[in-house]
Design a protein around this nucleic acid. Structure first.
Length: 591
RNA sequence: GGUUCCGUAGCUCAGUUGGAUAGAGCAACAGCCUUCUAAGCUGUGGGCCACUGGUUCGAAUCCAGUCGGAAUCACCA
């Protein structure tokens, strides 16, 4: 790689010139700012103490050294303490001729270690909402980015298909459902389950209100309302494998799964393996028992078992209840072990909201305390909440943005826009439908993924997601434009650029961005951040549009120049497509 | 209260891991379609990078404190 080569020689230069030893990888090589001549810049301030010369003189000396040693360097200039390096045109032409393909920047698997990534992890008592969308898109995209970095990736889902919340839906359905099914109600299965979950809550609250009105304490009422007791009884029956309960449970869950599958399909996310909590919730007990035996966990008088993490600055954490049943943490210890034994991954990434930061700190610490050295492999990809202008989404207040509704709404908006702009006049029905789905999802996915994962983000339902400016459709449009250009030119991908071709500043800006792409993929992988890809591809599209507007291609009479510009356009389209794929966004050939 | 994360233009977000005059988009305003797709391009205005101090050649970025916001601290998941 050119950058590391330059860093290497800079290190050599300061060693030879000033007997200063620096590691090549600590030398900061940055992109030269547009207002200056050159492609790469070295800040020489760190070397002036050793050179005992002014920054300018130091930069000049290092510059001369580099120019002599590196054939790729055409020339250099110095402004203040900044050494700007100009790279030979030959290097850039070769770069284009050798890399212009859809696979540029994407690595084949080059690492035998497996990376396991869990995302989605829905509860089966209600449909997916906007929060899940962020989770799914992030998880899927990070998986793709890691693959592009040469990792072997296994995508898993852990479906929370049991527990008190599911019993609430089941109970409400039994009581007030009159045998309603997705078929008879024309409701998606997950929405049907959600409907009864809400219904349960409504009646439950009414019971509590009545009890409070009759003089019961609020807390007692919440614990003793007949409905909640009934739901708890149902959970006990489920755990005892009562056939009737299991039957309803299976029926309801199967409706929900069908609903989820539909949403996942529209969203374009998938999994290599799906775990169900109903078959993992009992795991982990033996781990806890081993911890007791090894004396790293303690048992209290009431027989409950705890991990004491006060030495690590945290609290005590319950691992087994006094009645011997497990809690969430116990199960997570078990599933972590299960997965580790199954895949022996070098990394286990959990895409889970930042509300569970504490949980994962504890999970890691407990595993470490218990002596599992693979605890270090556990990696919580913690992402911020999606907030509405009024704050957090609250299902009780009906402010939850439903995933299916949002996707449909986006499709409608995309359709309206396309009609308004006269874009789909020569499209047949299927093509048009496909196009507005592609654009709708492009807008939605880009909107979510361009934001740094760890930050909370705001979604305003009143202002629908934009289609202009820094958006998915903007980038898709740029791609479609290039493809139209290439179709008209009957572009042949085998054409190589002549070395005599001159390169304009605007073109150089694009080449520099294209050249950066592999580094962006690497960075995005290390930081597990699709946002880095999103910001990069936006910048590339913006740069291309500016070039496209300003510099004629077909009107150019010089064939070499025309070919160069077409080749540059084709290269740009390849990188746009590839980067958008990493985000899970399709790009249309026409729009 | 303890812990963690966040605070950058009116709004939504970047800021390449400490570098040059802090950038985009939206919104506002002014231009550009008989010329490769105007979902585009060009320009104008808009900033105490929450505040205070420290570290050094150099800080939006690192450290400490203050203020503001969020999350979390269950025999829930």
């Amino acid at each position: 790689m050119l950058e590391s080569k330059i860093s290497q020689v800079v290190a050599e230069a300061v060693k030879e010139l000033y007997t200063l030893i620096v590691e090549a990888n600590t030398i900061i090589l940055q992109k030269t700012r547009k207002e200056f001549e050159g492609e790469f810049t070295v800040a020489v301030f760190p070397f002036v103490k050793a050179s005992r010369k002014a920054p300018e003189a130091t930069a000049n000396e290092i510059g001369s050294y580099l120019k002599n040693k590196l054939e790729e360097i055409e020339d250099f200039n110095v402004i203040k303490g900044f050494l700007n390096l100009q790279i030979k045109k030959d290097y850039w032409i070769n770069f284009i001729n050798q890399n212009n393909s859809e696979s540029y920047g994407i690595n084949e698997i080059n690492d035998n270690n497996t990376v396991l990534i869990e995302y989605s992890s829905p509860n089966t008592n209600k449909p997916l909402h906007l929060g899940h969308i962020r989770n799914n898109l992030l998880g899927w995209s990070v998986a793709e980015i890691l693959k592009a970095n040469g990792k072997k990736v296994v995508k898993v889902n852990l479906v929370n298909d049991r527990g008190i919340h599911i019993c609430k839906s089941m109970l409400a359905w039994l009581k007030w459902g009159n045998g309603e099914t997705p078929e008879t109600s024309a409701l998606k299965g997950d929405h049907l389950a959600g409907k009864y979950y809400v219904l349960f809550d409504k009646h439950y609250r009414a019971e509590i209100a009545t009890m409070i009105a009759n003089g019961t304490e609020k807390e007692t009422a919440e614990k003793q309302a007949p409905l909640i007791l009934e739901a708890q009884e149902m959970l006990r029956k489920w755990e005892a494998k009562d056939p009737e309960t299991i039957e309803i449970w299976e029926k309801m869950n199967s409706w929900v799964y069908a609903g989820f599958d539909e949403t996942y399909l529209r969203l374009g996310v998938d999994f290599d393996k799906t775990y169900h909590e109903s078959s993992t919730y009992l795991l982990g007990k033996h781990i806890v028992e081993k911890g007791i035996a090894d004396n790293v966990l303690k048992k209290k008088d009431d027989q409950s078992i705890w991990a004491d993490l006060t030495a690590e600055g945290l609290d005590e954490k319950l691992l087994l209840r006094s009645d011997g049943t497990s809690v969430y943490m116990t199960q997570d210890l078990g599933t972590a072990e299960l997965r580790y034994n199954e895949f022996e991954p070098s990394q286990m990434i959990y895409v889970v909201g930042n509300e569970q930061n504490y949980h994962f700190d504890v999970l890691k610490l407990v595993l470490k305390k218990l002596g599992y050295d693979w605890a270090e492999a556990i990696n919580h990809l913690s992402y911020g909440m999606v907030e509405l202008p009024a704050g957090k989404m609250k299902s009780r207040e009906g402010t939850v943005v439903d995933a299916d509704d949002l996707i449909t709404e986006m499709e409608n908006t995309a359709y309206d826009k396309a009609v308004e702009l006269g874009k789909i006049e020569d499209f047949d029905n299927d093509e048009a439908k496909k196009l507005y789905h592609t654009i709708a999802m492009g807008a939605l996915k880009y909107f979510i993924l361009k934001v740094d994962p760890q930050k909370n983000m705001l979604f305003n339902p009143a202002e629908s997601i934009d289609f202009n400016g820094n958006t998915g459709p903007f980038i898709q449009y740029t791609y479609a434009r290039i493809k139209s250009l290439l179709r008209k030119a009957e572009w042949n991908t085998n054409v190589k650029i002549n070395h005599n071709t001159s390169i304009l500043a605007k073109e150089k800006d694009i080449i520099r961005l294209l050249h950066e792409y592999p580094a962006v993929i690497k960075n995005a992988g290390e930081n597990r951040s699709p946002a880095l890809i999103a910001n990069f591809v936006f910048e590339l599209a913006k740069e291309f549009n500016s070039f496209y507007q300003e510099i004629p291609i077909f009107k150019e009479e010089n064939e070499e120049l025309r070919n160069f510009r077409l080749s540059l356009s084709a290269f740009t389209s390849n990188v746009i497509k590839s980067a958008m794929m990493l985000l899970g966004i399709d790009v249309p050939e026409k729009m």
